[in-house]
Every structure is written in C-alpha cells, then in structure tokens.
Design a protein around this nucleic acid. Structure first.
Length: 563
RNA sequence: GGCGCCGUAGCCAAAUGGCUAAGGCAUCGGAUUGCAAAUCCGACAUCGGCGGUUCGAUUCCGCCCGGCGCCUCCA
C-alpha cells in the first residue's frame, strides 16, 4: 500500500510495467548549500528504492538538479562567478551530503541545462496543442485550457488569488505560469523558437521525467511544499501534452520544523529573517552563507551537522518518524534518538566477542525470503516487512529492529555465550545477526562500520590529562607501583612522561596512541582490581566517565567506548 | 478568506472500531556485577475537549480548543 496525494488515500501498489518501478524525486535548486531539509526526501526515497528492490522490483530512481533559475543568476552575480560555477559548487556539496547520509541508490542525476533540447521540444509541443502561448518572448501555460487543473492540490483556478506576479501583464490569466522566460541582457540563455531565454521552473521536471522514465511512471516524490504550484503545474504540462496520466502515485514527505514556533526549516519566515539580518549587519564581505543566517544562531550548516552527528544518526533520526509527518528537528532530538542506536553498536561488538567475526562482514539475503533463527525472530521480521508494505512505515519497522536486538541479546544471556559458545549457538547467533543486517540494510542502516567519531587527538588529550592526574594521585599516596605502572605502560604507546617541579608533562603520541593508552588503562584497572585496590580502579573509571569514556567489563576482557 | 495536516505516557513515536494501545529515551523495582556499565526480567498511557453514529470508538462523523503547512521561490 502506498499513500497517494492525488487520491488522498492509501492505494494498493501496482506498477505501470510488470516488475519495474520508475521513481522521480524533485531535487534541489542549487543556488546555495544544502540544508537538512533537503535530505528528508532523498533519505526516504533511498529507503523506498532499497525496499522495492528487496521486494523484487527493478527500480530506476531519478533526482533532478535545477541548475538554471533566477536565484542562481542572482547568486552568481553576487559572488562574481558564472551560474554554472555556482551550480557546480552546490551540487558537490549536495552530493557529499547525500553520500554521508547513505543515499547511494540514485540512478540518474539530470540537470536542467543538459536537457534544453527536450525542454524546448516539450514547450513547442504544448504550443502546438494549444495549451501554451507565446507572449513577448515568454511562453506561458494557459491554465484555462486544462480542465482538471488543480486536482492534485485540490483547488480551482477561480480560487486562485495570486496577482500573477511581475509578469502579469504578459499573461492571459494570473494563474498562467511560465514555461519559457526571455533573457534580459547579460543573463545566461539558450536559443529557442521564441528567442533567447531559459526554462521556467516546472517544465524541466516534465521534460526530464518523460525522457528518463516515460510518459507515465510510477512514483513522483518531493516535499509537501511542492504540491502547489510545482507538481500541480507538472501534471498540467505533462498530461496536457500526452493525454494520459503522468504519475501513478504522488508521494510527498513532511517538512522539518525547527521548534514549535519557528515554521519550517529554510522556510519563508527564516529567509525573511535572514534578509533582515543581512541588511542590518552585513558588512559586505564575501558572505557566502547567503540566506542561511539562521545558522549563525547555532544551527550550523549541513556539512557541519553531519560532521558532528554522523550521517547514520541523522538518517536513523529521520527514519524513526513516518515520512508524511512533520518532524521537529534539533540536535538534541538527534542525540536522544542516537542513544537507541548504541544498543545496536554494542550488540555488534558483542557478536564480535562471541564469534570473532564482524557484523559488517555478514552477507544477508538481498531479496525477500530467507529463514529466521526462531519463531520470535521470524515474527519480528514478518512485522517489519508488513510495516514497510504499509506505506513505508519505517518508524514501525525500526521498532521491530529493536525487538530483534532484544531477542538476540536474550539469546546471548540465556546461553551464556560470552563464556563459551558452541558451534550450534554461534550459528544461531549469526542467523539472528544476519536477519538484523538484512532488515537494517533496507533502511540503509548498519551497512558499514561507522567511522570512529572524529576528534581522536582531542580525546587523547583529555585521556592523557586524566592519566597524569591519576598518576599524581598515586604518587601523592605513595602508591608507586601504580605510578610506575602508568609510566611504563605509556612507553609502548610512544608517550613519554617527565616529572617536573610544576607537575608532570607528557609528549609524543600519534593516532594509534589513544588505543594503546586505553589498553594500558584497562590493564591497570584489571591489576588494581586483582590487588583489591578498588580505590584506584574506581577512580580510574570515574575520571574516564567524566570525559565521556566508559569501560565495560566483559567475561572475555574489558572494552571502552566514547560518547 | 480558500485548501490541508496534526494533537497518543515526562519526552520522541507506531498501530488499531472490540483481543496485552508497538518501539525508543527517561524514571522506578528485580536478576547480574567487588561497586559500576552493559544485558535480561518487570512497572509506568484510556488516546486534546464536547457531542453524534455504533451492541461497542482512541480509531468513523460534526463542533470546539490548541499547534502547523500551502495559497509567492522553497525538500
């Protein structure tokens, strides 16, 4: 079942062509850096493609890039570079962000400037059919000729209150929209039967989707804010031109909101606020942050956010909520959600301790089928798939992932796998873990070992500060065995400690040192405990906890982690 | 003004006309642990308000209150 904005209902999913699915998602207009709101659609549709592929469909997913537009021209003027350069810069940023969030399933990335021929042909076709007219070098779509105009956004032409904008004088009706805009001098332009100009915003999607997916394709997506006018106009163009439905299912994702009062992220209020600020305090510098001034209030750019939070946590956060609902976005919310993610990471380490194998090396089934380890796991898997079948209910599906994690941990507990695991137990555990990998993979989660959270050097610094402290305390308490053990233990890490009258100093160390120091500390803690020196052992643990490092004792040794 | 969406426990968030209203975070017990952490077990909601339809509604309908979006570029 899939919800269709056009019918306002969930409908059974049936493809246009047997076994094949064509998906088109409206991508960004690349006049500025991407913000988190731009990622909602891609993450969702990436998941949808993974799921449809898992379900046996052959999927082609297209995301267009609007690289010609008034705002691009403006940005180019402001930055003193060409429109193409502005686009190139921001496309790079967009693609980097997509990759960081695990969006890897896009098949085609058409750019408006690379499809000029198709766009012009499309417009010419509409004029021939009588749906569009030329006016002083512009071409407009004649809304009055399209009987069912407004069916997607549920409005009628007479309800439309717009004043037609600055080009009203050239239009037959205020509701008519531009297919082709004549160029002013100095603007980038393309030759056409109507003179030099550039395409209107909506036509590129009609032209590109036709080119890559055909006149009728399966799923067209985008943010809820695109329903009108963008998608409404796409329908008008394509269906007038082809005389048949453009899209089977219109799927719109909800928008992100900053907090209860702020309106959507990147929304009108924010931009107006930005303009005001820019006007008030912009000293005229390069100001490449453009209209994203809200970031100066602490939000940070998307790249920064990803660097700080990690793509997987953001993806997980986005997928926890149903795609059609509004999501209140904040870093705090991501961090809270990420706590749940740790459950899985710990389970993966546990698996490695028991079997010596990496979760990330498991090769699950890539297609619906396969067996689960037991009835409970089978039930969870079945519910996961059922949730995805019901309008891609990723939130509910994630619930089942947690259920599976619980089941797996319980299996480890009940059979004391950390002490000794039989061949059969290991096999069962592997089956359980493989099921988790299989289902999580549909959501684009746990595909690769997450890069160790950055700031290794910084962490080493705080760890060393603590080590020095600890050693100072040991020395003060005449516990020289511990003090010497620390100093000797640091040597293999390439770190030298020197005692000075003003206190101890340390030097040396490289990227491998952190791990070595931690191993030393773990060993120190073990020997302290063996000697019943709990004061030292506990002080060590508590100091580490203070800088966000935790040590967990296991049957097979201790492990540390940093949050 | 027109067209829509949302309101579930302290927080986030699913599902559902009747069967235990998922799951996560937090909190409180219990097992485990030298103490912790992790893990497991258990506790923790009558679904914004009012009225209607129904044998029965959190779920359908109406009204009200509260929050939000679109109607202009926007994922």
């Amino acid at each position: 079942m899939i919800y269709n904005t056009l019918s306002k209902k969930k409908e059974p999913f049936a493809t246009v062509r047997q076994g094949q699915v064509g998906v088109y998602l409206c991508g960004p207009t690349v006049y500025g850096k991407a913000h988190i709101g731009h990622m909602v659609g891609p993450v969702l549709f990436d998941t949808i493609k993974r799921y449809l592929t898992y379900s046996g469909y052959e999927v082609r997913w297209v995301v267009n890039i609007t690289d010609v537009d008034d705002k691009l021209i403006k940005a180019a003027d402001e930055q003193g570079i060409s429109m193409a350069e502005v686009a190139e810069l921001n496309i790079k940023d967009y693609e980097d962000n997509l990759a960081a969030l695990g969006v890897t399933q896009i098949d085609d990335f058409p750019k408006a400037t690379e499809c000029m021929g198709e766009i012009i042909d499309f417009i010419a076709g509409l004029i021939d059919e009588g749906y569009a007219y030329e006016s002083q070098g512009d071409v407009y779509f004649d809304v009055a000729k399209d009987a069912d105009y407004g069916k997607l956004s549920n409005r009628t032409v007479t309800e439309m209150q717009g004043d037609g904008g600055g080009a009203a004088a050239r239009k037959r009706s205020a509701a008519d929209f531009a297919l082709w805009k004549s160029a002013k001098t100095g603007e980038p332009s393309w030759d056409s039967p109507w003179g030099a100009g550039r395409p209107g915003w909506h036509i590129e999607c009609s032209a590109m989707s036709k080119k890559l997916l055909g006149e009728t394709f399966d799923i067209h997506g985008g943010g809820l804010d695109l329903v009108f006018p963008h998608h409404e106009n796409e329908i008008a163009q394509s269906e007038s031109c082809h005389g048949k439905p453009m899209v089977k299912y219109w799927a719109h994702n909800g928008l992100l909101r900053k907090d209860a009062a702020a309106g959507k992220i990147g929304g009108r209020a924010e931009r107006q606020g930005a303009d005001r600020e820019a006007g008030a305090d912009d000293a005229g510098g390069s100001n490449d942050a453009g209209g994203k001034m809200s970031r100066s209030k602490g939000a940070g750019g998307l790249a920064d956010l990803i660097a700080k939070q990690g793509g997987e946590r953001i993806r997980f956060f986005l997928l926890r909520t149903h795609y059609r609902s509004t999501v209140l976005f904040s870093e705090e919310a991501i961090e809270e959600a990420a706590v749940g993610l740790e459950t899985f990471y710990r389970l993966f380490k546990r698996y490695e301790r028991v079997t010596g194998k990496s979760f990330y090396d498991l090769k699950p089934a890539t297609i619906r089928a396969g067996v689960a380890a037991n009835d409970a796991a089978a039930a969870a898997k079945q519910k996961f798939v059922a949730a995805m079948d019901d309008d891609f209910n990723t939130g509910s599906a994630i619930g089942e992932l947690f259920e599976l994690a619980r089941l797996t941990n319980k299996f480890c507990e009940d059979n004391k796998l950390e002490s000794s695991a039989s061949e059969a137990d290991q096999t069962t555990l592997t089956t359980l873990m493989t099921t988790i990998k299989e289902l999580a993979g549909i959501l684009g989660l746990f595909l690769h070992s997450p890069a160790s959270a950055g700031g290794g050097d910084e962490l080493l610094g705080s760890v060393m500060q603590l080590v020095i402290e600890l050693r100072a305390e040991a020395r003060a308490g005449k516990n020289f065995a511990v003090a010497d053990a620390i100093r000797d233990g640091l040597k293999p890490a390439g770190i030298v400690v020197e005692d000075r009258p003003s206190g101890a100093e340390w030097s040396g160390g490289d990227t491998a040192s952190l791990e070595a120091v931690m191993q030393m500390l773990i060993a120190l803690r073990a020997s302290s405990r063996a000697a019943k020196d709990f004061a030292t052992a506990d002080a060590l643990r508590d100091k580490l906890a203070a800088i966000g490092v935790t040590i967990e004792d296991r049957a097979g040794g201790a492990e540390w982690s940093h949050t």
